[in-house]
Design a protein around this nucleic acid. Structure first.
Lengths: 327, 327
DNA sequence: CTGAAAGCGCTTACAG
DNA sequence: CTGAAAGCGCTTACAG
């Protein structure tokens, strides 16, 4: 039904091999006149190479699998976008799978993508220790993007979460508001917690109170209510993700506390959302594009080293920390 | 290198046809004992069918293409998620492409996905009149998701934007704050504008002022500054997207206007974000899941009718419209 | 119930 | 510079 390379060959009066040579610009040379005839035939017939046949023959699908925890989180959407763009630049399309935060779903999605025949896999897991064992092994290179710890046997990529958290907390401490509170999630937050502690230690200030909650708007909201609902609330807080910070902002709003006058806030991730909260959030930005670029490169170049590559984070100062206004 | 069906056949001592029958559960029956042997061989060898070979042979990739305007907008991310889930339920994976709002990029992405061999295409365009003509035609079914107008020659799916906007505006008018302002974007906002006008007409109230801006946080911010920066500002506003509403909220915050006391706000889309703004946004919710379900069904079932299917929208009342507090 | 064989649309050594 | 042919890994009529 569809136009095949044989149709093109017949129309142009050449062999189908020549059609391949023209389409792929190699590996054999083709006379200019012949190539022109073939190109015209392709144009006239509206020929498109069958990607399944190409993949079968080549032994490569030129498909990259990407697993993210939750597309509804702008951070993961940003990662997805960045990976897609970098992959496209290398002739790869990406098969994206969102797991909605479940370990089991993540495992299933990895299986599905492998079964789909992706050439490589990038996994942006929410888990500190993702479950990467599949039936019969993976059979394809897998690189972990956005991990906080070394994962034995797999190449991984993260950024300097400890340093970023320390910088953000130190910035808050510099405002002279005393101990800095902490809103933080599960075990993947460990480095951020350490960075927060390190900043207090280095400043010789006692650690502020901690409220724990999921890495979500809702989790931040609940943690914010608990942290600031009590009379001995801190006057500044380091929140370990933008999403949680949005929830904290909402909690502060409900409690009638002003930001930054009553409470100074610094968050973590650096997603677009933080530019449009009220006030705008001072945040520690993850190097998303650089991480995506490095991850795709490692995945597609068959880089088999399994160390963890760490990129630097960057503090973006805006209104919520009290710079400029309350100081 | 990889385990093939021939390896399994050899290991199990059967023909490769039998392996197919077992893997696909048909089309020929297999004796229970034989099937068990095959299954064991599959297990032991870690066999996975080669999806390219299957696609080539079947003439179907079981891949669905989905084009969205911008993954960073939670609304499109929600659509992407919904489409993925519905597709997965039918054994399809989705190749997602984000166009970052450009008409030319959209066109290119459609081409890419077709060249990739998707069985069908769902296009969530930002354009009122998407450019759907590709070299040599599409060759695959294409359905438009989230269109506001009939598109000749293509099946399309939308929701009742006019009715939704009318309901939202009428709700605001019911609060007795006089004329309702409007923040709105380009031509795809036409129906929402009509709904806003209809509500004013039906209530016998003059139309409020209009501010136009892009369908983005930034566009809403600018429009908000203009609309509320002047002394004859309206006391309520209908904002034609959640993203813009976030920008409007930011503008109001900067102008020192309180929501809903000084200005009541109703927005449009119903994304998660609206639950966590301060205050929470009253919004007109799009039936995202229902639309995704219908779109996938039409795309995969080869439904060739080219009419536009319209689903109902729903008003979600929260704090920003003044219900409960300022009234 | 099982097997031998054709063929899906490509790519690429090989021969000319 | 060009062509005939093998083969990638499947599925499925066909014969037994």
């Amino acid at each position: 039904m569809s136009v095949t390379r044989a149709d093109v060959a017949r129309y142009a009066g050449v062999s189908s091999a020549v059609v391949s040579y023209v389409v792929n610009d190699g590996p054999r040379p083709v006379a200019a006149a012949t190539a022109a005839r073939v190109r015209e035939a392709i144009e006239v017939l509206g020929y498109r190479p069958n990607p399944s046949a190409q993949a079968l023959r080549r032994g490569s699908s030129r498909l990259l699998g990407h697993v993210v925890p939750d597309l509804g989180n702008p951070l993961w959407a940003q990662f997805a976008l960045a990976v897609e763009e970098v992959a496209a630049g290398r002739g790869y399309d990406v098969l994206l799978a969102s797991t909605e935060g479940g370990a089991e779903a993540e495992h299933r999605r990895i299986e599905t993508l492998v079964a789909r025949g992706v050439d490589a896999l990038i996994v942006t897991s929410v888990m500190a220790r993702p479950d990467l064992v599949t039936r019969a092994g993976l059979g394809v290179p897998l690189v972990l993007l956005n991990t906080f710890f070394e994962v034995p046997g797999f190449p991984s990529l993260g950024f300097d979460a400890l340093g970023g958290a320390r910088t953000g907390t130190a910035h808050l401490l510099g405002h002279g508001r005393g101990p800095v509170g902490l809103v933080i999630g599960g075990e993947t937050g460990e480095l951020r917690e350490q960075g927060w502690r390190a900043a207090a230690r280095e400043a010789g200030t006692p650690e502020g109170p901690i409220a724990r909650g999921e890495f979500s708007r809702h989790g931040g909201y609940g943690a914010g209510l608990r942290l600031f609902g009590s009379p001995d609330r801190p006057r500044s807080v380091f929140v370990s993700s933008d999403l949680q910070a949005v929830g904290v902002l909402r909690a502060l709003f409900e409690l009638g506390l002003r930001v930054p006058e009553d409470v100074a806030v610094v968050s973590f991730d650096g997603t677009v959302e933080t530019e449009f909260t009220n006030p705008q959030l001072t945040t520690v930005r993850q190097p998303v594009e650089a991480m995506a670029r490095a991850a795709v490169a490692r995945a597609l170049d068959g880089d088999t080293s399994t160390d963890r590559q760490v990129l630097p984070a960057e503090l973006v100062v805006r209104g919520s920390c009290g710079c400029g206004s309350a100081g």
